[in-house]
Simulated assay, not measured.
Amino acid sequence: MAAVFLSLLDSQIVATALPRVVSDLGGLDRFAWVTTAYLIGGSAAAPVFGKLGDLFGRKRVFLASVTVFLAGSAICGLARTMDQLIAFRAVQGVGSGGLFICVLALLGEMFSPREGARYHGWFSLTFGAASLAGPALGGILTDLVGWRWVFYVNLPIGAVVLIVVSSMLRLPAQSTKARIDYAGIVLLVVAIVALNLLTGWVGTTYAWNSPMTIGLAAGSVLAVTLFVLSQRRAADPVIPLRLFGNRTFTIVVLLGFVAGLVGPGLINYLVLWFQTVLGLDVRTSGYLLTAMMLSVVLASWASTKVIGRTGSYRWFPVLSMALFAVAALLFRTAGPRTGLALTTGYVLLLGTAAGLNSQALSLAARNTADRRDIGAVQGTATLVRQLGTGMVSRPSAP
């Protein structure tokens, strides 16, 4: 959970320091890429690290991902230009995506789905702690010791994680001979980067009929097609296509994409809506977002408690999608005359919908996997969910 906290905290803490970063390094026209590079790196790394854990052992790959994250944090703090910071954030994002998916796979290997539900509940609490502490901690560190310490703060926590996990975690030895799908990894990374750039730029930075948009669309289709073909022939594919022969896994992946699209993706626009449509001030908007994040955490935590006691998770995604639909209809009717009380209710409903599926879908995906495929299953489900979020929330500035 300390490693998960690092991954989640970093996405929150850096945003607060960005104005000071721009003031020091310049590059106002590229500052959005500080976040974008981190998100793209994490998206591309998740399925790759998940599969590497299946092949080489989850402890070894987890330690490697934490090391990459800490190395990325260190060089981010040393960056002298905006371009350097963007490149180093991509490295840090790769480590973040790896350690996050490795923790999910580790829990999947150590515990049954029902028993693991209790530990997935800690994900919810960790997410809430990072979301609430990140902005405040980022501001404090930036004011007291400078923006570079929003990256350096990861180093002592990460060092403790490395020492404790390397000395105390015991897992069965891997007996399978590893065969790395290099072609699949390269094609997957190319496809993810192209899709993220396409969804972030089309209609904003570049017109729908611009050469850049057409080129990215064609490149995305080509990369995805070649990736699928490569997975059919690879001895140990990054994303085994046989996984989609399980109907539950396919449904989980599709629901994860929709949940990412209408949950975290739309949440990014709420502050703008609060202030421009409802006319709320910055402080009130912050309170509403905090309330919503608390509802996400509480709903997710409560769902894992129920799953741990009953062993059943199938109704939580259904209820989540129903609440998403109701929340969308309510927001559709909202306007400048909507009172603060009703707005708060709508926001809490949206947060509850997001929280009910976050851990339930992960547990459902785990339940479809053999031990040899836990990493690939969790990596694929996480990747598709992040792609859904990225389609509506990716910053557009090149």
Rank of each mutant, 00 (worst) to 15 (best):
I40T: 02
A71D: 06
V68D: 05
A322G: 11
G260N: 07
I192D: 10
G50M: 08
T213Y: 08
L348E: 01
S300A: 12
M321G: 06
R233S: 04
Y152H: 10
T199N: 12
L254W: 12
F111K: 12
S73P: 06
S11H: 15
T304I: 01
A360H: 06
E115V: 08
L198K: 04
L288A: 05
Y152R: 04
I192H: 03
V238K: 03
L349T: 08
L137I: 02
K305S: 15
L195R: 02
M321C: 08
T250L: 14
A360T: 13
G355L: 01
G57S: 02
L6I: 07
A79K: 05
D370Q: 15
L298A: 11
Y152A: 09
A133L: 11
L162I: 01
V326M: 11
P135H: 14
T276A: 07
L280Y: 09
R309S: 01
P156M: 03
L349G: 00
G200F: 02
F88A: 02
L348T: 01
L18A: 06
K177T: 15
L141Y: 02
I185C: 13
W33I: 05
Y313R: 14
V262T: 09
G108M: 07
L187M: 05
T382N: 14
G95L: 00
M292H: 09
A234E: 05
A223L: 04
V253T: 00
A45E: 06
V190R: 07
L144Y: 14
A365P: 06
T380N: 11
F127I: 15
S362T: 15
A325L: 08
R371H: 12
V103K: 03
L261T: 03
T16C: 09
A223E: 04
A259D: 11
L329V: 13
S73L: 10
Q174D: 13
T250Y: 12
T16D: 10
E109Y: 12
F331V: 01
P156I: 00
D373G: 11
T225N: 09
I86L: 02
P264M: 04
A79R: 03
R233N: 07
F5R: 00
T344Y: 14
F127E: 10
I13D: 07
A87G: 10
F62P: 00
S312T: 15
A45L: 06
A353L: 03
Y206Q: 12
I140P: 04
N209M: 13
S295F: 00
L187N: 04
T81V: 12
M391Q: 10
S23D: 13
Q231T: 10
I163G: 06
I180T: 08
L39S: 06
T225S: 11
V224H: 03
V258H: 07
K305N: 14
I185W: 03
P317K: 10
A173I: 01
Q275C: 05
A235V: 10
E109A: 15
S167A: 14
T338S: 00
